[in-house]
């Protein structure tokens, strides 16, 4: 079976529209999840037991749920409860709900790499917790968080393909549409795979750059 380049070119506009949706989906998820995940991670290392427990319960419940079930819930369940949402919004809600939990565990590893002595030194100097987090904890935790964060980002780019199942016309959905219409698989799946590969590669490069930026002497 030959590789029909002309057919692929013909479909390129639709495929790029799909890629654009994938990138939007990814960007929105990461932009919302990252600060939330940081809060959850801080919550899990909080001195307040209730905050700690609540954060741990959230993370452990989400970890136990298949992401597809969560997406079905936000896609079918939310409308059933009277909230009408676009497929894109439903996908964002479900994936933010899950990604925040996964990502918080990744970020928590960075927070835990900062030794207890740093907390004690700041406490002994009467430095407030908020200032400690901003000036002492995060600058030390970021270099450790960097690797797991970008690994999670790469996993998330690929995971956006699940949104195709809840009617979001992203890259995988468009490729599948092309496939069902033309009965040609190789062209479109190769294209989709290449796109995901390039996204991951760009993220890996970003990781290297970020790691240099946040490094401590």
């Amino acid at each position: 079976m030959s590789f029909d380049l002309d057919l692929l070119v013909q479909w390129l506009p639709r495929l790029f529209r799909g890629l654009w949706v994938t990138l939007q989906l990814f960007a929105v998820i990461m932009i919302i999840s990252t600060p939330l995940a940081l809060l959850v991670a801080l919550g899990r290392t909080s001195q307040n037991r209730r905050v700690r427990t609540a954060a741990a319960v959230y993370v452990n419940v989400v970890r136990a749920l298949p992401i597809l079930v969560v997406l079905f819930f936000t896609f079918y369940g939310l409308p059933a409860l009277g909230y009408s949402v676009q497929p894109f919004t439903a996908a964002v809600c479900g994936m933010v709900f899950c990604t925040t939990a996964y990502l918080s565990d990744d970020l928590r590893a960075g927070l835990m790499a900062v030794p207890a002595g740093q907390y004690e030194a700041a406490d002994a100097l009467g430095i407030s917790r908020a200032r400690f987090v901003r000036r002492i904890l995060l600058p030390q935790a970021l270099p450790v968080m960097c690797g797991p964060f970008f690994t999670r980002a790469i996993v998330t780019v690929k995971a956006t393909s699940i949104a195709s199942i809840v009617a979001v016309s992203e890259l995988t959905a468009q490729s599948m549409a092309a496939l069902t219409e033309t009965y040609r698989a190789t062209e479109f799946l190769t294209f989709a795979a290449a796109c995901y590969l390039i996204c991951s590669l760009v993220l890996a490069l970003l990781q290297a750059a970020t790691q240099r930026l946040v490094a401590i002497r």
Partner: peptide, 9 residues
Amino acid sequence: FQQFNLFPN
């Protein structure tokens, strides 16, 4: 402190 606990950043 015994371990100094300076802020390394």
